[in-house]
Design a protein around this nucleic acid. Structure first.
Length: 832
RNA sequence: GCCGAGGUGGCGGAAUUGGUAGACGCGCUAGGUUCAGGACCUAGUGGCCGCAAGGCUGUCGGGGUUCGAAUCCCCGCCUCGGCACCA
């Protein structure tokens, strides 16, 4: 056995040979091929597919091991299980890596994929590789391009020049969802803004449904739903116009606090507001405003956010408050965001903290219009804005109303008098999908001088990404330097035309890959029938980091597809499980930190089954966990004990135990094991249902301990039958967790059926039931005695037993019993 | 700052409905086995007092509800996560 592995290989069980043998067996016999038997229920178990970044470490593997246990378990429950895997293989890290290694992103990517597939196989993950998909292959990405064209037809895909997030380090544009705290999600560098012409998907048109249909996702973690709702950021308010004091024109503002309209003392435009230029033209303030705009434009997004003093300048212009006809100054300030609402605000310093700070910094007046009950706010002495509710004052005819009521009344009045209208605003903005990068699917668009922007005709798809590109990994589209790619003919007029040189963001491929798995070879985006039979995904498993990125995009795709009649359901993932991360030495496992635990080193030393069980045994899978090498030993020793207890029993194993056991006279010790066996089946099944794999494994440990005890104690023929029953069930229960060892033991037991397909065991409630219970006797809630009694005794009997206990009698001496509480089969509490 | 989750031995964690706190594992201690190491086996292991029987105490801190609270309620502390000029 030693000759097969490294010198550190443990030798408790011959795992190296076993694992190799069964991995080969499963593969040769197509055991993991998706079954589609008509009479079985279908179950789609999917783990978020990985980006092929090279090595997978044990931290990554948690996800896949969880999924594998679930998938294997459902197969044993007799279901048709779809358990596929693929690779999210387009994206910029491949470009970076390729440059570093002086190779091509494609070559690097395929190499990584090969390595990762070997690792999946080594851990015994039961993927149906005949359904593998790979997003960087034309046969996959052509459908991404196809879908782009459908979105173009629907007006969901569109191009616009807009200020977009730009990461100078990665030299790439970023979607809003890719910005984390003003920084690039990948490199953690500060992100800038840049004005660029880009492709967007109109996800905002689906904001309402994305929010409302979160309610359909009952089996999603609350946390993820909350994060999505916050990201969508629905807010109700009123939009109205503030006319300019001189000349015509007006400035639209959005507010959620229309009740504070009478408190406006100034207004503020975002520096990027298109009206700024017009307002300042020819005024004395022009120079100072320009200087301010210049200063702001040099600030990064992060600097703008973290500014301590609220800076701004007066434009010289005035606007009219339509509520009271008052003239208020128009300022420019960078605390107003260009992308939200109208890019301009009414400022009510008395009742908005940001406006308050701005007013204080710039010496602007403050007027109270909401007075809290029993108080008298004075602008002179206020130290912060009053943002809670109260009674309207200084608000004309609305004075005296509660502000919540006034909100409604004022909105109605504005609508009736044509001043404004109620509006719902969203934080969500349209999704930026184009990237000026090489390693992606080209945007299937052709620009013709005569015909304008033309979609590539569907029969000309895919637009193949040329492999011989002179890519450097530097910014700017590589495809832009390839005349042979760019120059083409217009599909409409046949004249000379140019191809779009951008590629699609990686998120677009992952937004529908789960659909492709239903019919991965289809000569269309997918077979409707296959999709209808397998989807929505019954169990989706992945990291929390995708709570608003991948999971929001995928929901959006699914809804669009539903509207296009491509699918018949609004939500792609019925049940979601988000697993916690694995840390080591206090940090997330990563190659750069040098704290990774490799799949190979684990498998070499302890074997795949130990690696799997250890990951599962670490704790609740939704929680983060710290990797401690010492813990693996414990699991490894357990598997060794399990191996020995079963192999020791082999010579006595009787496959016909179930026929004989009823007639046999089982000893007391044998009864205990029988009970334990049935209890264990029950517990493991329940634990699998609630994703408590660690307690399922503890249950197996307890069973093994009990088996060893009987094995030591008794050689009675009846007890050997009990041990046979325990062995058979133990091996079945073990199968999803440690499939190699389970398969080997199954074979050693002489069983011929494929263990992976054997029915999940059931328990007999009558056998599982305890015959005796430990009756706890308390006095005033304190445990004073424990007595083993027959289960199911009536209340009166239990009370009698309790009072007869000598220990209890000692305690009760000279005290009057006030009350006795009896919980059947549990305890008696005597109150004195 | 706002929102959410959580706080249980030396450590990871159990405790399904308010009913024996600490299952299971790691570590540690003692003993056995072994040429030795490893592995394996047996016993012990929340704290305090006690030779022992046993007692007291104990689930972040403080209050409350209850015959009974790790579990429910209120206040506070701490940790982690999300959001953070969204008008």
């Amino acid at each position: 056995m030693r000759e097969n592995g490294s010198s550190t290989q443990k030798t408790l069980t011959p795992f190296a040979q076993i694992e190799k043998k069964w991995q080969q067996h499963w593969e040769e016999n197509g055991v993991f091929h998706t079954r589609t038997d008509a009479d079985r229920q279908r179950f789609y178990c999917l783990c978020m597919y990985p980006y092929p970044s090279g090595e997978l470490h044990m931290g990554h593997m948690r996800n896949y091991i969880l999924g594998d246990v679930i998938a294997r378990w459902h197969v044993m429950k007799g279901e048709n299980v779809l358990h596929p895997m693929g690779f999210d293989s387009f994206g910029q890290p491949a470009e970076q890596a390729a440059i570093e290694r002086k190779t091509h992103p494609a070559a690097w990517t395929y190499e990584c994929i090969d390595r990762m597939k070997i690792q999946f196989r080594r851990l015994g993950i039961s993927y149906d590789w005949s359904r593998e998909l790979n997003t960087c292959l034309p046969e996959y990405y052509r459908w991404d391009q196809w879908f782009f064209l459908q979105l173009l037809k629907e007006g969901i895909a569109y191009k616009k020049k807009a200020p977009v997030n730009w990461c100078p380090k990665c030299e790439i544009v970023l979607a809003d969802e890719e910005i984390v705290g003003g920084k690039c999600w990948r490199c953690d560098g500060e992100a800038d803004r840049k004005d660029l012409e880009q492709w967007f998907y109109r996800i905002t048109a689906y904001a309402d449904r994305l929010l409302q249909e979160l309610d359909l996702l009952e089996e999603w973690p609350e946390r993820v739903r909350t994060m999505q709702a916050e990201w969508l950021g629905r807010s109700e308010g009123v939009e109205f116009n503030m006319p300019l004091a001189e000349g015509d024109g007006d400035i639209a503002v959005f507010t959620t606090r229309v009740d504070t309209t009478w408190g406006i003392t100034y207004m503020v435009l975002a520096p990027e507001h298109p009206l700024v230029e017009k307002l300042i033209k020819g005024r004395p303030e022009e120079a100072s405003v320009r200087a301010y705009l210049e200063k702001v434009s040099r600030k990064s997004e992060l600097e703008r956010i973290s500014e301590e003093v609220r800076e701004g300048v007066f434009t010289g212009a005035y606007a009219i408050n339509p509520a009271n006809e008052e003239k208020v100054p128009v300022w420019v300030g960078d605390y107003v965001l260009p992308q939200y609402g109208t890019g301009a605000i009414m400022a009510v310093p008395a009742h908005d903290q940001r406006d308050f700070e701005f007013a204080k910094a710039n010496n602007l007046p403050i007027r109270v219009v909401i007075q809290p009950e029993g108080e008298n706010l004075d602008p002179q002495t206020m130290t912060e804005a009053y943002i809670d509710s109260g009674v309207q004052v200084n608000s004309g005819v609305f004075d005296g109303l509660g502000n919540e009521e006034a909100k409604v009344k004022i909105a109605e009045w504005m609508e009736e008098s044509g001043i404004g209208r109620r509006k719902v605003n969203w934080r969500l903005r349209d999704w930026l999908v184009s990237r000026q990068r090489y390693w992606g699917a080209p945007v299937p668009i052709i620009y013709c001088k005569k015909c304008g922007t033309v979609g590539v005709p569907e029969d000309q798809l895919p637009v193949i990404l040329p492999e011989d590109a002179p890519f450097t990994g530097k910014g700017g589209s590589v495809l832009e330097q390839m005349p042979e790619f760019i120059n083409t003919t217009c599909p409409k007029c046949g004249g000379p035309a140019r191809r779009d040189t951008d590629t699609l963001a990686t998120w677009t491929y992952s937004s529908w890959y789960y659909l492709r798995f239903a019919s991965p070879k289809a000569d269309k985006i997918f077979e409707r029938e296959a999709v209808d039979s397998w989807l929505p995904v019954d169990q989706y498993i992945g990291g929390i980091e995708h709570a608003v990125l991948h999971l929001l995009y995928s929901r959006f795709y699914c809804k669009v597809m539903q509207d296009l009649g491509l699918v018949g359901f609004p939500e792609p993932f019925r049940r979601l499980f988000t697993q916690g991360m694995i840390y080591k030495d206090g940090a997330k496992m990563s190659k750069s930190r040098g704290n990774v635990v490799g799949v190979d080193e684990m498998c070499d030393t302890y074997g795949a089954d130990s690696a799997r069980c250890f990951i599962l045994f670490m704790g609740p899978p939704e929680q983060d966990a710290e990797w401690r090498d010492a813990g693996v030993e414990g699991i490894y020793r357990f598997l060794g004990r399990l191996w020995r207890v079963v192999t020791t029993h082999l010579e006595h194993y009787d496959p016909k135990w179930s026929e004989k056991i009823a007639a046999a006279t089982v000893t007391e010790a044998g009864q205990i094991l029988r009970r334990k066996t049935h209890q264990t089946i029950k517990r493991v099944t329940a634990d699998l249902e609630r994703f408590h794999f660690h307690t399922a494994i503890s249950a197996l440990m307890e069973l093994v301990a009990q088996m060893r005890e009987l094995q030591e104690e008794s050689k009675e023929p009846a007890d050997l039958l009990v041990l046979s029953e325990a062995c058979e069930n133990l091996v079945k229960l073990l199968s999803p967790f440690a499939p190699h060892m389970a398969a080997e033991l199954w074979e050693k037991l002489g069983e011929k059926d494929e263990l992976c397909f054997v029915s999940w065991p059931t328990w007999d409630e009558a056998i599982a039931k305890e015959e005796t219970i430990t009756l706890v006797i308390q006095i005033n809630g304190k445990v004073r005695d424990r007595i083993s009694v027959e289960a199911g005794l009536p209340q009166e009997k239990l009370e009698e037993i309790a009072h007869n206990s000598p220990k209890i009698q000692t305690h009760l001496k000279g005290r009057a019993v006030k009350q006795t509480i009896v919980v059947r089969d549990k305890l008696v509490n005597i109150v004195v």
